[in-house]
Design a protein around this nucleic acid. Structure first.
Lengths: 366, 366
DNA sequence: TTGTACGCGTTATCAT
DNA sequence: ATGATAACGCGTACAA
């Protein structure tokens, strides 16, 4: 009874004005207030069963008569029913969403194919689940929107990419939500998962290449030293030189950006003109540095050998195709998502740290 | 009474087993099931008021005694209370989230600074609101996760960027949610908002530059012809040539990508060696094409003049700094978000179409 | 197998 | 100014 009246009411409303409105002249174009979406109740009424049964069908419960199941399914499609996310999430205590936290500097972040690939990997894995991705641009406010959001039950887990070591605002998040960091977190005592590429090893590979090719005066153009990855690559570079008995040249911050790379290249040439080999810690920077080297009369690889990092498209479109270190970035994203999904599914055996390895891509610049 | 017992019950549960578990040896590391977050109820109990009063304080209602308000605020901070998003959304029928729909090809999309800037703009505007951004990678499944998500009340509105004209899966969304397209949608009869840059005009500007510089054989490397922006730029190019009494050279699809640009450049030189001016419809493609031109002995701008599009960082790090067309991409994102927010706020006067204009950035390539 | 009834955490409408 | 109380849409023990 009560059910019936409610449904007819719903149907009545729909047939009403609301979707015939667009032609109205000006005052209110449309009432976009969550157009009366059909509810379980409506489906139940149409199918002639109870809400509970509809719910069972929706959630694939085995214990439901095939006949009623069919009726329900039919009702669902004719009504175009979609479960209300909020309601479901309220009762189940799960949002089926995970947050992707990216650094403030959106333009640089998204402009970097390395990160683009990670996102592609994350999405690739998530696509096969029923989780969705929420994009959070990190704000540094200690009580900012981001934290409130993450704490408000809007997501079940968090993926953090490119996290500066100095940023501790995420520390508290790790206590209520599972957090997976891409790239070493650098955060001490935070209970989380980490998927990283072996930056030290990658830098060793790159630098060793320079050494093997006979370079004697080897410098590096690094990323911002506030990032662990940048630190690690510098360390790999330095240790390789030391093992080789070479004196490390200067370390110049190129900010992981094209213009930063160009700037760094100029500084490098000024400060250390005898340089004959340089490990540039990202292809993006290398693509900025390369023209500078050439401008200043260095022939590559004859006078100056250059090894990049990332194997991004930029590496191939450089003046001189760039020998570089390939990172398994897509795989990294996939792995991060996979871990999070496992953890959310209650799986317990996941390694806290996963290290993916790199490999040298040999081209012409070194 | 009822309230009291309920609260103590809650507290009891909390003191119970569930959060004392982490020390357990191995079987379950942690119960990440939305760690009993404090609720209104808990805050109310601690502050010695009713849920209603707490709710009023949280939502800044004026009608609450300063004294109780203080008590509530204190309770909130000591408990670390954050309103539950799902519950709030269930009753208010609003999610306070908007979806950013991006095309399938994640890597390319995010690798393009043009889109990165748009996202930056969107975020810039959203930051000043209490809306969050949800990232949806478009799947083409007609009944896919994306549609279900958008229909499930998880978001209040949608922003679509880089929409292929052939993709109609979003058509139905426009009927239940406000949708803002970035770049002309190309979808007929869809009730939505559009923010676009004047691609035709931008291409005219670019091509006119070539004409003014005395080029006689002008070709274009275009984006994928399934995208309206690519189509428009071709049209601007063609119309300019016709007004100038010049015969248009070939149109070669460079796919808006670096390698596509390189490929297109090779094809162009093969097919139309007399070319002395080319409008490349994105800087990314231009940065791929430029090395090819130079490789094949074309001096730029002497033998061949090149004008790009986007004014992306790539334009400056080209072998020859690229004359290009700047798009107001950040502003575009900001505008899209602004429109959506206005519409969601019930504002009615918003133009359905907003066209942002471009301007030529003169450098050396033409 | 199916239906009833309760609860998830908030907001909003009432009385008080 | 404040406190009960009824929704909001759904999942699920429990009863039938």
């Amino acid at each position: 009874m009560a059910t019936d009246s409610k449904v007819s009411q719903l149907t009545g409303e729909r047939g009403d004005g609301s979707n015939a409105a667009p032609a109205s002249t000006g005052s209110r174009e449309r009432a976009f207030t969550r157009q009366h979406a059909p509810t379980l109740e409506a489906v139940a009424a149409l199918a002639g069963v109870s809400r509970a049964t509809v719910s069972r069908v929706v959630n694939g419960s085995p214990k439901v008569h095939p006949e009623s199941a069919d009726a329900v399914r039919k009702a669902i499609t004719t009504l175009g029913y979609v479960p209300n996310r909020a309601a479901r999430s309220l009762v189940s205590q799960q949002s089926h969403a995970i947050a992707l936290v990216v650094p403030e500097d959106t333009t640089r972040f998204f402009g970097d194919v390395y990160f683009a690939s990670i996102i592609a990997g994350i999405n690739d894995r998530l696509e096969q689940s029923d989780y969705v991705l929420t994009l959070m641009i990190a704000d540094h406010a200690p009580q900012g929107k981001m934290l409130r959001y993450l704490a408000g039950g809007a997501v079940d887990g968090v993926v953090v990419v490119s996290h500066h070591t100095s940023d501790t605002s995420l520390t508290q998040v790790g206590q209520m939500l599972p957090v997976v960091f891409g790239g070493r977190s650098g955060l001490a005592g935070v209970d989380c998962w980490v998927v990283d590429v072996d930056n030290v090893d990658g830098a060793v590979t790159a630098t060793q290449r320079l050494v093997d090719r006979g370079c004697q005066n080897i410098a590096t153009i690094s990323g911002p030293l506030s990032m662990q990855s940048a630190l690690d690559r510098v360390e790999g570079w330095r240790s390789t030189l030391e093992s080789a008995g070479l004196t490390p040249g200067p370390v110049i911050d190129g900010d992981y950006s094209v213009v930063g790379g160009a700037r760094a290249a100029r500084a490098l040439l000024d400060e250390y003109p005898e340089v004959d080999g340089v490990f540039v810690a990202s292809d993006l920077m290398a693509s900025g540095a390369m023209p500078v080297f050439i401008d200043r009369g260095r022939r590559i690889p004859d006078d100056l050998k250059v090894v990049g990092y990332d194997d991004s498209p930029a590496a191939q479109s450089c003046e001189v195709p760039l020998t570089t270190v390939r990172q398994p970035s897509v795989e990294m994203g996939r792995e991060m998502a996979d871990i999070l999904l496992d953890v959310l599914a209650g799986q317990t055996g996941r390694q806290r740290t996963t290290v993916l390895s790199t490999r040298l891509v040999e081209r012409e610049s070194a």
